[in-house]
Simulated assay, not measured.
Amino acid sequence: MKPNYRRCISCRKVSLKEDFWRIVRVFPSGNVQLDQGMGRSAYICPQLICLQAAQKKNRLGRSLHATVPEALYQTLWQRLAPSNPQNKI
């Protein structure tokens, strides 16, 4: 079986699907959520720079053709915090 590759919407890096966070606009409700559901998906690297650019330039919203709630960005920032040594001061 061939591996599944995806591209980060922020830095455009191509890597295995498991290396990214998945954000989904669920069909048919149109709700945007993390990790699960069927519908239009976008992938983003779990890195500070990628998340900052995605939020600042609305890359998730444009990729998903939907409004991304602020609570979703807060959840992504919380996921990033424990893995980033710069945040541990």
Rank of each mutant, 00 (worst) to 15 (best):
Pro3Tyr: 08
Asn4Ile: 11
Tyr5Leu: 12
Arg7Ala: 07
Cys8Val: 03
Ile9Ala: 01
Ser10Cys: 08
Ser10Leu: 04
Cys11Tyr: 15
Arg12Gln: 15
Arg12Ile: 05
Lys13Thr: 07
Ser15Thr: 04
Ser15Lys: 06
Lys17Ser: 12
Lys17Asp: 14
Glu18His: 07
Glu18Asn: 06
Glu18Asp: 12
Arg22Asn: 03
Ile23Lys: 01
Val24Ile: 11
Val26Ile: 06
Val26Leu: 04
Ser29Leu: 06
Ser29Lys: 09
Gly30Tyr: 10
Val32Glu: 02
Asp35Val: 02
Gly37His: 06
Met38Val: 07
Met38Glu: 15
Met38Lys: 11
Ser41Arg: 02
Ala42Glu: 02
Tyr43Phe: 15
Leu48Gln: 07
Ile49Arg: 15
Ala53Thr: 07
Ala53Pro: 00
Lys57His: 12
Lys57Asn: 13
Asn58Lys: 13
Leu60Pro: 03
Gly61Leu: 12
Arg62Val: 08
Arg62Met: 12
Leu64Lys: 03
Leu64Asp: 09
Val68Met: 04
Pro69Cys: 07
Glu70Pro: 01
Leu72His: 10
Leu72Met: 09
Tyr73Ser: 00
Tyr73Arg: 00
Tyr73Glu: 00
Gln74Arg: 14
Trp77Pro: 01
Gln78Ile: 02
Ala81Phe: 09
Ser83Tyr: 13
Asn84Cys: 10
Gln86Val: 08
Gln86Glu: 15
Asn87Glu: 15
Lys88Trp: 11
Ile89Val: 09
